[in-house]
């Protein structure tokens, strides 16, 4: 079992790297949607992957959600998977805004597209700061309009040890659009990540 603990200083460092990467992703999303995105400080939390589905099951209890997954692979064993969770309440409005037609196939296509914009921009920004570079698998939908999504999340999460949970609240100008992003990474990548953070901290 890998020790998952991060010191306060390592955590602050990771939070700032996430902020910078998130800023780049928000800018991309804003351009993609043709609107302004109010950026909040994304709350990050490091949790054991095994406990993840419990957490999200309670948050998404009252609604159905779509999960989109994207795998990434970097140098020196840094790899993992991101999962975007979308609440579906506002999906129709965004589909209209982007000119997707109003059916389930288009909805899936749109969420895959948005996920791709958000996660690849976010991950590229993060990789750059970590002096790494990632390649990506094609995004795939794990679950759509599915009330049992917690099971699917649990199944995916159990392949990894650590989850970096990044709580993203996107508030667009005219309506709210909430999604959560989860970064899942294996134990050896946790060690690599901590070492990289220490290297960055040693520079300042």
């Amino acid at each position: 079992m890998t020790e998952l603990h991060f010191t306060d200083v390592q955590r602050d460092c990771l939070q700032e790297l996430v902020n910078v990467a998130m800023g780049q992703a928000s800018d991309k999303l804003a351009r993609y949607l043709g609107t302004f995105v109010h950026l909040q400080v994304p709350a990050i939390a490091l949790v054991e992957a095994a406990l993840l589905s419990q957490h999200f099951a309670s948050r998404y209890q009252q609604q159905s959600a779509t999960l989109v997954s994207l795998g990434f692979f970097g140098d020196q064993g840094l790899r993992g998977e991101t999962i975007m969770l979308y609440q579906l309440a506002n999906v129709g409005v965004i589909a209209q805004l982007l000119g997707y037609s109003d059916d389930a196939v288009s909805e899936a296509e749109m969420l895959t597209d948005i996920s791709s914009v958000l996660t690849t921009t976010f991950l590229s920004g993060l990789a750059e700061q970590l002096e790494n570079s990632f390649s990506y698998a094609a995004p795939r939908i794990l679950s759509s309009r599915d009330k049992d999504f917690a099971d699917k999340l649990a199944y995916t999460a159990e392949q990894w040890q650590l989850a970096l949970q990044v709580d993203i609240r996107y508030q667009l100008t005219d309506y709210s659009f909430n999604c959560d992003m989860i970064l899942l990474i294996p134990g050896e990548a946790v060690l690599r990540l901590r070492q990289t953070l220490d290297n960055i901290l040693a520079d300042f």
Partner: peptide
């Protein structure tokens, strides 16, 4: 000095009297 690099945000802070905008890091 910010990570929020959207053009509209840059315009807003310049209108509020900022001298310059530097993208993080």
């Amino acid at each position: 000095v910010s990570a929020d690099i959207q053009p509209e945000m840059q315009k807003r802070v310049m209108e509020l009297g900022a001298l310059a905008f530097v993208q993080k890091p």
